[in-house]
């Protein structure tokens, strides 16, 4: 009898309650780990406060936002990040999509080649930064040698030259993340029905016409997703920069020295962590970054929807 009774008791927990049992802990965790810090940091962004100082936060209204939006150095950080994101993501799109076009036709060894190309994106950015720092070294790094510079005294100092340093970070980022774009592009390319190309061939459409009117429109939604992901990541760029240049080198813009590879995330880290530990100010900056990322993401998503709607 007992073996029949137990399942009967279990039936008292209805689906609705079962769902609640699973969902409520998750929601609580989200509130504790995400929502509360988000709201608390919003509050802190209106205060003068240092987390390593026991003094209570002091309400300063919009002062922190005013400082972030009026200081040339912060605008410089946003400009560096924007420039970096634009160049890096554009190049990743070109390189990644080109690789996908080359690898879409199967050939002997194409599987292994695809896997090998994917390796960079599986590495830790900190590790990538550390070994590319050596690769860029004009004394013993192979990058300058590959470019034909055998004399370290005339070879470009990629990480020390203010005109080259951002390009060095871009090169590493493109090397690391173009495979991601390639992967998404390959998925898109393989989903294009063959009959579209067959019909185009019957109509004697040129290869360029087929690419422009079939391949590109069909892959575009996935490419836009890649652009969205990579742009958000580019705006968060931190570890590669810290590993390669530490935000430097610096140059004089007018009479003010600025760090040419100091992205907003690097600046944010320096503001938030000791020795500066300006928690209030860094929270305000983080919210400005958040708003920018949400705005850009919205633009992309609208474009994506437009393409989907045809």
């Amino acid at each position: 009898m007992s073996s029949y009774n137990q399942p009967a008791r279990r039936r008292h927990i209805g689906d609705k309650r079962l769902i609640q049992m699973f969902v409520i802990p998750t929601v609580l965790l989200l509130i504790l780990m995400n929502v509360f810090p988000l709201i608390y940091s919003l509050y802190l962004s209106f205060t003068e406060y240092s987390a390593i100082n026991p003094t209570a936060p002091k309400w300063v209204g919009l002062d922190n936002y005013r400082q972030v939006l009026s200081d040339n150095l912060y605008w410089h950080n946003f400009a560096v990040t924007g420039r970096y994101a634009l160049i890096s993501v554009s190049l990743q799109m070109i390189v990644g999509f080109s690789l996908a076009m080359l690898l879409k036709e199967k050939f002997k060894g194409s599987g292994i080649l695809t896997t090998l190309i994917l390796i960079p994106m599986m590495l830790s950015p900190a590790v990538v930064g550390a070994f590319w720092k050596n690769i860029f070294n004009p004394s013993f790094g192979i990058f300058d040698q590959m470019l034909g510079y055998s004399d370290p005294n005339t070879a470009p100092e990629w990480l020390g030259n203010p005109n080259l340093a951002l390009w060095a970070v871009v090169i590493v980022d493109v090397w690391m993340w173009s495979p991601f774009v390639m992967l998404l592009s390959l998925a898109g390319l393989s989903a294009i029905p063959d009959y579209l190309y067959e019909a185009a061939a019957i109509d004697r459409a040129s290869a360029w016409f087929q690419f422009r009117r079939i391949t590109l429109p069909q892959v575009m939604p996935l490419l836009l997703i890649a652009v969205l992901f990579r742009t958000i990541e580019a705006f968060k760029q931190f570890d590669l920069v810290m590993g390669l240049t530490g935000g430097g080198p610096a140059l004089l813009e007018g009479r003010q020295a600025v760090n040419v590879t100091e992205t907003v995330s690097v600046r944010l880290f320096r503001l938030a962590m000791p020795p500066q530990a300006q928690t209030g100010l860094s929270s305000a900056m983080a919210y400005v970054v958040l708003v920018i990322i949400i705005a850009i993401s919205n633009l992309y998503i609208r474009s994506l929807n437009k393409i989907r709607e045809g």
Partner: peptide, 8 residues
């Protein structure tokens, strides 16, 4: 007079 690559 520093070795190349010692920029950081």
């Amino acid at each position: 007079f520093a070795p190349p690559g010692t920029d950081n």
